[in-house]
Design a protein around this nucleic acid. Structure first.
Lengths: 327, 327
DNA sequence: AGCGTGAATTGGAGCGCTCCAATAGCATGC
DNA sequence: GCATGCTATTGGAGCGCTCCAATTCACGCT
């Protein structure tokens, strides 16, 4: 920096201002400094800059599991939003363990991020509370109820409603839900399914099978159905479960959607696969990302604000896995 | 830090040494400092530490596309390896554009990472060359030939050999390869397939169809095959292509592996899907990660070392998509 | 000529740490 | 009683930047 300043015949401060895009630098000085910097191959040291300004313009994004294609979509949306709001995104991989997640959160704090977005975190409330005193935290898809922690959810009620309405409109009545067991959000998904069915006057023909958010769980549930009474439609807790179900049905020679309609959740890469072409609920990730970054910005401005909960409505993407039931 | 030092009755320097795990601190001082730090909630500022020490103990990992499940596997392996070698991993998402990748590489450099691992990068040689003067660079799965840039590859020759041997052992002779077009590594994959077929004396019955590394390309190639002469086995440039092929075959009522055997590449989540259960070549990611981090370490020690190329043999994972051809 | 104005520029303190050379403390050996 | 060699500590300069208050400068105005 010293060298650039000398070469351009200005002070170090002026060089600093140029690289901050300050409006109060004359055009002449600006271009001279820029030219010399280019010539000398100077790039500002981000570390020093962050240390001196006490602002990193960085948001930490903590993901649960990058193997789940859903989180790749989540990442994309959030990274894009952070970037367009002028932040750099730092990424960490929680690998489905609360312990590792807490650690990653600590790393974010150590790096003085301006805020952290936690996607479906498993971290304990006590860790969340203590961290929330240091940096703004936003929980996505987990409804925590803690003093200064904002929450962004997609609206499970709407999701269930969309699925049930779609299936009923096609003529289905005998619908099974394979749930996500004790996984995050599984209870809400199941409960709203039941509520929607009841509202439609179908409490008699609705069924729920216990599962998990995995392909394996989908296979097991499907085998159980194949041995017993098949419904005309199966609504799965997520796309992975639906993939497991599809595998078993195919092996058994049961056609989708000819014999049974299949619905997933999350609209991941799996649903888009032509082999599966799965009707699925698409979470409003872009809107959720926008809301999250907004909440962080607002909490930076006003740290003592009360916690907010934002709910955003999902949409249904219909594909070839759903159709009217036979006869 | 000042406060901790005062509370523990020692100097700032001593506190610094404690947090560096220096061996020359007495047990008494160490525990006193640690206790006070704990009590006061002190955590060292990573930024200041990195600035002062001029070492970040951080490796940048540049991925091409997190939507491709292959890269989720790559990330896992490399992150784990970096961590166990005492580095923190910084992640960036290139999103399949050389431009964005160059930018991300610039960000890494700005953050003074100790080294960068580039997975299948599309960056131009000139950018690579200039960046390699600032930080150690390792290219994974791209065979660049530049002065100080090390390369880690999995051995395409072995991969092709494994596939061809497996299919021949099952009794196949009429084998089609759907290639990756102009994608990274596609040429090598195709060429070694042809070489292996020739070596087996099957040049007459071998065929290659032009494609791309996408599901869409797989569908198109499959449609072409369905309309023309079907082989007894199809070897795809990657798993996504195989998924596309499988979708078309299923729709046409062509059974896998009854009528035709299918082989993929990369052994991603897709291959593991029960619906597909795809025989696929597994890249030795853990070994590749280890080699990469090693190369970075060695280049930090000896920056002017000549470029090295490391080749690592992959393995074949056989699943239900391959079997002996009909009669 | 003297003045006020606003824009452009500058000097220097400070961000929170590391690291080096210097110092303190203390048991040894003679 | 003193030099010697340790190890445990300390002071202070310095990492590369930002940011504030102060200064300079050119300009138009009375």
């Amino acid at each position: 920096m010293e060298d650039v300043a000398a070469a351009a015949g200005v002070s170090r401060s002026l060089v600093s201002l140029v690289f901050q895009d300050s409006p109060k630098v004359s055009e002449a000085s600006r271009s001279r400094v820029l030219a010399e910097a280019e010539r000398l191959g100077y790039r500002p040291n981000v570390l020093a800059r962050q240390l001196a300004s006490n602002r990193t313009r960085t948001i930490g994004i903590l993901l649960d599991d990058l193997h789940n294609p859903y989180f790749a979509d989540v990442l994309d949306a959030f990274e894009a939003e952070a970037e367009s709001a002028g932040y750099r995104a730092l990424l960490a991989n929680g690998r489905r363990e609360g312990e590792r997640e807490s650690e990653a959160l600590g790393t974010f704090i150590d790096h003085r991020v301006d805020g952290v977005i936690l996607a479906s975190p498993r971290i304990s409330d006590s860790v969340l509370t203590s961290m929330s005193k240091i940096a703004p935290l936003v929980c996505v898809e987990r409804r925590v109820d803690l003093p200064r922690i904002d929450v962004v959810m997609h609206d499970e009620r709407v999701g269930a409603q969309l699925v049930v309405d779609h299936l009923i409109a096609l003529g289905h009545r005998d619908i099974v839900h394979i749930d996500g067991g004790s996984g995050a959000g599984a209870a809400a998904r199941r409960d709203w399914f039941m509520q929607s069915m009841r509202d439609a006057g179908l409490s008699a023909s609705m069924r729920v099978i216990g599962g998990e958010f995995t392909e394996q769980a989908g296979r097991e549930a499907a085998e159980q159905l194949v041995r017993g009474a098949m419904p005309t439609a199966i609504y799965c807790a997520n796309d992975a479960v639906a993939a497991g179900v599809a595998a078993v049905l195919q092996r058994e020679g049961i056609s989708i959607p000819g014999d049974v309609s299949l619905v997933g959740y999350d609209d991941t890469m799996l649903a888009k696969l032509d082999l599966l072409s799965l009707t699925s609920v698409r979470q409003p990730l872009a809107a959720m990302a926008k809301a999250s970054v907004d909440l962080i910005n607002r909490r930076i401005e006003k740290p003592r604000r009360g916690a907010e909960i934002v709910d955003i409505a999902p949409s249904l993407v219909t594909r070839r896995s759903t159709a009217a039931p036979r006869d």
